[in-house]
Design a protein around this nucleic acid. Structure first.
Length: 419
DNA sequence: TCTGGGGTCCTAGGACCC
DNA sequence: TCTGGGGTCCTAGGACCC
């Protein structure tokens, strides 16, 4: 029988700031997003004062000051560092751990006798070693562990830890959980479910499987089964490298010039390339997105994106910047006040898989002649001088720019002429 | 003046092939 | 003439997560 514990740091960003400011103990604290745009974390004291999550800072700045709320700009380096410490401590309890987000992890506790006591040991050790308060929820599925965690966090009686594994309180817990608070049920789904008279987690756990499958798809069906204690979402201990790598930012002020946008897109592209190399991946394509400020309804609105595919998957900074820049030129329209730009690498695969893919592509082409010509070129000019592109129909031959006469052809039979 | 950033998964529909 | 089933691959868009 599987047992899952969900460990979740309370008000993570706000708690991280408090660790280094003992004078703020028991004081309300909030943390702001990039550009100090909106509130992304609130300490318990701030929540008690009614400070809303996601509220734009400029609208409530005066109110926060009046209430004595301390305000921090976000410091992601600090949060990443604190997160790593917490995850290391959890690894001391079980090797079965899925780091789910910066402030959450699922831990497998199979074979543990006293789950409640183990949960309290985890909570105590993290607090002693890092100063961060956490909540622990335990159950036989991840979805139920999420619910247990949520109740542990809110209920004063639970003291931050709730074990729902084979618990006689499970039905009560489901009944007390509103549909919108279930992991995997968002605004849209909850609306549709309410129309069917499904309002609580208990209602959803009793819903008809066929109807759920037909009307909502397999994702929600899995949620239903998980609520019944049937585990459908296993621990993901070694998440594969990211499939898409994105860098996106809002500008501090409206941007109208192509030149300025280009600078932004170039620096975002460089960051994406860095991230790619950091996880030893390459991208098959790059997507550029720009948009105006949707909150300024009086302004003309425009947003656009464009995907550019690389002949050969790459993590090369200048190549990525070039492609992004030319994509930007194509979607840029003058006369708009731009607010935000994003650069996303897609088709991301491990760098060392590319040669394998290329070989497969070559074999699919079944053109012995082309393959032997490629081999000969590579033998004469050095390894990887010529490679077949991984994407596109048929075979596309790409010759690296180190060669004096770079050639690019989409025809197998053309290759010999490239010599 | 001022409204975050970074992801995943699923499904539907079109292109293309035999 | 344009009719059929079965399959893959790709893309766009929706919904959700923290």
């Amino acid at each position: 029988m599987k047992i899952y514990a969900l460990i979740d740091c309370n008000s993570f960003y706000a708690s991280c700031e408090k660790v280094f400011r003992p004078d703020l103990k028991n004081r309300p604290v909030v943390v702001l997003s990039n550009n100090d745009g909106c509130i992304i974390a609130r300490s318990a004291e701030a929540k008690a004062l009614g400070v809303e999550m996601g509220g734009p800072y400029f609208k409530i700045k005066a109110e926060l000051a009046r209430k004595g709320v301390r305000v921090f700009s976000s410091n992601y380096e600090l949060y990443g560092d604190m997160s790593a410490r917490v995850m290391d401590i959890l690894r001391g309890f079980s090797p079965d751990i899925e780091v789910y987000s910066i402030d959450e992890a699922f831990v497998g506790l199979d074979g543990t006798d006293d789950l409640d006591a183990e949960g309290r040991r985890i909570k105590r050790r993290i607090y002693t070693w890092t100063g961060l308060p956490v909540s622990v929820g335990i159950a036989e599925t991840k979805t139920l562990a999420k619910i247990a965690n949520r109740i542990a966090k809110k209920s004063p009686k639970a003291g931050g830890v709730l074990d729902l594994f084979k618990s006689r309180f499970r039905e009560k817990a489901l009944e007390a959980t509103d549909i919108i608070d279930i992991w995997g049920v968002g605004r849209r789904l909850s609306k549709r479910l309410r129309n069917m008279g499904i309002n609580s987690a208990l209602d959803l756990s009793r819903a008809n499987e066929q109807i759920i499958r037909k009307e909502f798809g397999v994702t929600l069906l899995r949620t239903v089964l998980e609520l019944r204690g049937i585990s459908c979402i296993p621990l993901d201990m070694a998440p594969p490298p990211k499939q898409g790598i994105c860098f996106s930012r809002s500008f501090g002020r409206p941007v109208e010039e192509l030149r300025e946008l280009k600078e932004a897109v170039a620096s975002y592209s460089a960051r994406v390339a860095e991230k790619l190399r950091g996880q030893e991946s390459v991208a098959g394509a790059i997507d550029i997105y720009i948009t105006t400020n949707r909150f300024r309804e009086e302004d003309p609105q425009y947003s656009a994106h464009l995907t550019r595919t690389f002949p050969v998957a790459t993590s090369d900074t200048s190549e990525i910047i070039d492609y992004a820049a030319s994509g930007l030129e194509r979607i840029f329209r003058a006369g708009y006040r731009y607010k935000k730009a994003a650069v996303t690498a897609t088709g991301v695969v491990p760098a060392d898989s590319v040669q394998t893919n290329l070989f497969d592509t070559a074999m699919r082409g079944r053109n012995e002649n082309a393959i032997s010509v490629m081999d000969e070129l590579n033998h004469r000019f050095g390894r990887d001088t010529v490679v077949p592109a991984a994407t596109g129909l048929g075979a596309a031959w790409h010759m690296r720019r180190e060669m004096k006469s770079p050639a690019y052809t989409t025809d197998w039979d053309e290759l010999p002429r490239a010599i």
